[in-house]
Design a protein around this nucleic acid. Structure first.
Lengths: 232, 232
DNA sequence: TTCTCATTTTATAAAATTTTTACATGTTTC
DNA sequence: GAAACATGTAAAAATTTTATAAAATGAGAA
C-alpha cells in the first residue's frame, strides 16, 4: 500500500487529487504549506510527494531540495506556468516529474503510476547485484568476469549489450519497456530515441540467438518491450 | 556482513544514516563524541567509519589521523562546509571520501557502496601477490627478485610497469578499470588523468608482447579497462 | 649543475561502439 | 483488407574509447 503526501494550498486541488489517489488505493496525507509539508515528508517518509511550487511559508523548490537532501522519496512537482518548469529543471531540484496546471486527471494518474513503476524497477535492480553466474540452456554468463558463452563458444559483447543481457537475464520473465531500459542502463538523463534500444537488442540477438527468426533468450513482449525467456 | 561505525553528535543524522546502512545489511555501531569514537574504532576495527568533522571532545580530523595511523579502516568524512573539505585534503588526513552536509541519501549510499567495492578490490589484489614466481607460456616473472623474462631473455621494466604486470598477472581474467589501477598502484590520492594508465600499458606491452597488434598477455576489455589473459 | 630515466601530459590516429536513419516487415484495430 | 502503429534489420554517421608516439615535467644521481 503506497502512501502519498500532497503539499498544496488549494483545497479544491487537494480534494481532486485525493479522490483519484484513493482510487489507486493509496493512503493520502495532506499539508497546506511548505513547512508543514516538509515536516510531514521527513516524518512519514511517503512513497510519493505531490508538491505545488508556490506555497505559503516555504517555496516548493526549497521543500523539494530539503526532502531530497535527506531521503529518497519520489516527487512530482505542480506548476502554474510552464516557464516555472524550466526554472525547476535549471536548478536541478531533482524532482522525478513535473506537471503544469491545469492538468487532466488522466495524465496525472498516468504519471503517478509511472513513478511507482520506476521506483519498483530501481529497487529490484538494486537487489540483484550479487549474482555472479547465470546459466540457461547453452548460454552462460559470468557477470564478474564479464564473459558470455553460447554452446561453449566465447562471445564478445559490447558494454551496452552486456548490461542489457545481465539485467534481463537476472530477471527472467520480467518485461522491460524501452524507456525502462534507457533509464536503468543509459541513465535517467539520456535524451535520445527509444529506438536505440531496438538496435542494441538486435545486435545482441545476432550474437547470442541461434535462430534470429525465433529468439530463444530475448523475447519481444509486443506493445511493451523485451524480456528474458523464463522457460529455460 | 559489514560493520560500520558512525561518529556523529547530531542524533537526527545518526538515525538517518543508521536506517539506510541497515538497508544495505550493515551492522551499525555509534559514538557521539570524538574520544569515544576513536576508542570504538580501535577496539572494533569496523569496515567503515562515517566521521563528522566537528565533534565534542576531539576534532574529527584528529580522530581520522589517529585511526589511520594504526589501522586501515575506510573513512568517509562529513563536513558542513565545502571549505572544510579543502582543509581536510590539505592536511592529508587520508579519508577515503568526503561529503558535505546537507547531502542526499542517494549520494551517500552510492559512496558507501563504492567504498565497499574498492575495499574488496584492494583486498583481492593483496591476496595473491604473495606468490613469488609467475609463469605463463614464455613469460616468467620473479616477484621477489623483481625480474621479468620473455622467451628466456631478460626484460627491464620500470617500477610502475612491473607493478602493473604483477597485479594483473596475479589475477588472470580479472578486468581492472583505469581508475582501479590508479587507486591500487598509484594510491588513492593520485590526481591525474586516467590516460596515464594507457601510456604505461602501452610501454609495458612494447616490452613484453611479441606482437603489439595482437597482445597475448595484456588484453583490453573494451569500455572497461585491461586484464591479463586467463587462457595461458 | 647537468644528465638520465621514469613518469606524466599532450596530440593525433585508429578502432570500436553507439546513435541515428531509412526502410522492411509484422501486428492490431476498425 | 487498409490504416495506424510497433518492431526488425542493416548500414551510415557520430561519438567514445583506445593506441601510439612524442614532448614536457620532475626526481634523483653523477
Amino acid at each position: 500500500m503506497k502512501e502519498v503526501l500532497i503539499i498544496e494550498d488549494d483545497p479544491e486541488i487537494i480534494n481532486l487529487l485525493e479522490i483519484h489517489l484513493q482510487d489507486l488505493s493509496c493512503t493520502v496525507i495532506k499539508a497546506m504549506d511548505g513547512k508543514q509539508g516538509l515536516d510531514l515528508a521527513l516524518e512519514k517518509k511517503p512513497d510519493l510527494c505531490i508538491l505545488d511550487i508556490s506555497l505559503p511559508s516555504m517555496d516548493g523548490i526549497e521543500v523539494c531540495q530539503k526532502i531530497r537532501a535527506v531521503q529518497n522519496t519520489s516527487i512530482i512537482m505542480l506548476t502554474a506556468k510552464s516557464e516555472e518548469i524550466d526554472r525547476v529543471i535549471g536548478l536541478e531540484v531533482g524532482a522525478d516529474d513535473y506537471i503544469t496546471k491545469p492538468f487532466s486527471i488522466r495524465e496525472f494518474i498516468a504519471r503517478v503510476k509511472a513513478i511507482f513503476r520506476r521506483a519498483k524497477l530501481i529497487q529490484e535492480s538494486m537487489n540483484t547485484e550479487s549474482v555472479s553466474e547465470l546459466s540457461f540452456d547453452d548460454l552462460s554468463i559470468s557477470v564478474e568476469k564479464r564473459r558470455v558463452g553460447v554452446a561453449g563458444k566465447k562471445i564478445e559483447l559490447s558494454p551496452k549489450e552486456f548490461e542489457l543481457l545481465v539485467l534481463m537475464a537476472s530477471h527472467p520473465g520480467k518485461s522491460y519497456s524501452r524507456s525502462d531500459l534507457l533509464r536503468i542502463i543509459w541513465g535517467y538523463d539520456f535524451d535520445g530515441y527509444e529506438h536505440t534500444v531496438n538496435s542494441h537488442i538486435n545486435r545482441l540477438r545476432a550474437k547470442i540467438e541461434p535462430d534470429m527468426n525465433e529468439p530463444k533468450f530475448i523475447l519481444t513482449t509486443w506493445g511493451v518491450g523485451y524480456k528474458f525467456n523464463e522457460e529455460l
